[in-house]
Nucleic acid binder design. Structure first.
Lengths: 218, 218
DNA sequence: CGGAGCTTTGACCGGCGTCAATGAGAGTGG
DNA sequence: CCACTCTCATTGACGCCGGTCAAAGCTCCG
């Protein structure tokens, strides 16, 4: 399998909704996101894709892209050959089972976001979003305690959380006034993770990626 | 693989959040749903599980149940042995790839619901929900044109769409007043599928479950 | 006949959207 | 070094959609 990379500039469309599928990719640097446009021009961002995330798998079940994938920051991806992936299903069942389990985690994360959009106030939604991002950064071994750069505009936070940019601004100001977060420029610092998690209705999940249910192969 | 079935009465909990995982199942009759409770007592229903749906797969990646699964109607499921599923990954890679593709569809459906909760008005949310259910029933070869029984209370519609039961009532009344649907008892009839789809921001997706990307095995 | 569960309706209110204006940087060219 | 512009953040005024509270109907069932 030859490995090829591609670069995308911030704001670039990687794959457009209803268009051709494009490749399956792994994010090797930067952030991508999947979004959909409504006909009145509003946008909803469904997922953020961080370094290491597998992107574009929905191409395995559709013939047109079900959503738009764009680069949130300058980003680099590594292309994955579809047929090579297919071969993996045959040659490496354990790896395939591992992928399958990862899909479940992805789905649970989506479900959590659904809960947040369906049942939380603006504060709760933004808090949940920040917790989600903070967790992913910690997972990527990026220290958070001293603050971190949020490469996301307030408009994008709105599109992620189902709010307007204006109200995101007011909400983040409220969170800061309450001493939960501190902002300076694009740097954000979480001051009270516990209360923020509570606001977000956040509950710790423990993924277990060891497929004990899979018989030893070979 | 021995096949065992279980019955659940309407309202029964099949598997409780944070509790043990329980089995992987296929719904053979009735409807199930996955939901989460917030600490203020509100509830969000993430998914409906119809006949033929594979349920409980998240057990492959967690050691505690990430959400609650309950019976929406009296229901019957067929239990699937975890290890037998594991063996399938090794013995039947094409079937495994098929499952993988189905997971993608599931995720796209979740993403559509996320869009709806994030960016639609009450009318749009309820319309999207009705479109979703109607489609699943058509997919199961149940005729819809003459109306069909909706085994869902308005409170449950609220928990599905992120609204209160009271507002669901007003919203459905409005949809009926506009001539989009007709209701009598638990029977619902879609009078103007086109306008309803438009309200719901519904767009037809064409799943392609033929894994052409998978090399021929064996 | 009585109760339980669900639906329906009204009155009122608050959170969030909308519209509009201003401020604050960052980059660019003169 | 200074206009100029473009993007993004911020703030205020105001209105509406959907939540809240409360009270009645309706249907089914024992």
């Amino acid at each position: 399998m030859t490995i090829s990379h591609r670069q995308f500039r911030r704001g670039t469309v990687v794959r457009a909704e209803h268009g051709p599928l494009g490749d399956i990719m792994v994010v090797t640097d930067g952030w991508l996101f999947s979004s959909a446009l409504l006909e009145d021009g509003r946008r909803q961002i469904m997922r953020l894709h961080f370094r290491g995330d597998l992107v574009g798998l929905d191409g395995l079940a559709y013939d047109r892209a079900p959503d738009t994938i764009s680069a949130l920051t300058d980003a680099q991806v590594c292309l994955i050959d579809r047929v090579a992936l297919g071969r993996m299903f045959i040659d490496h069942p354990r790896l395939c089972a591992f992928l399958f389990a990862i899909q479940q985690i992805d789905r649970v994360v989506l479900a959590e976001r659904l809960i947040s959009l369906g049942r939380s106030s603006a504060k709760g939604r933004v808090a949940a979003l920040l917790m989600w991002i903070a967790n992913r950064m910690q997972f990527a071994n990026i220290a958070i305690d001293g603050g971190f750069v949020l490469p996301v505009t307030q408009e994008e936070i709105g599109d992620l959380s189902g709010l307007t940019a204006v109200h995101v601004n007011r909400t983040m100001r409220a969170l800061a006034d309450q001493g939960l977060i501190a902002r300076s420029g694009t740097t954000l610092r979480i001051l009270d993770m516990e209360r923020l998690a509570h606001l977000a209705n956040y509950s710790e999940r423990r993924p277990v990626l060891d497929p004990v249910w899979l018989p030893l192969a070979d």
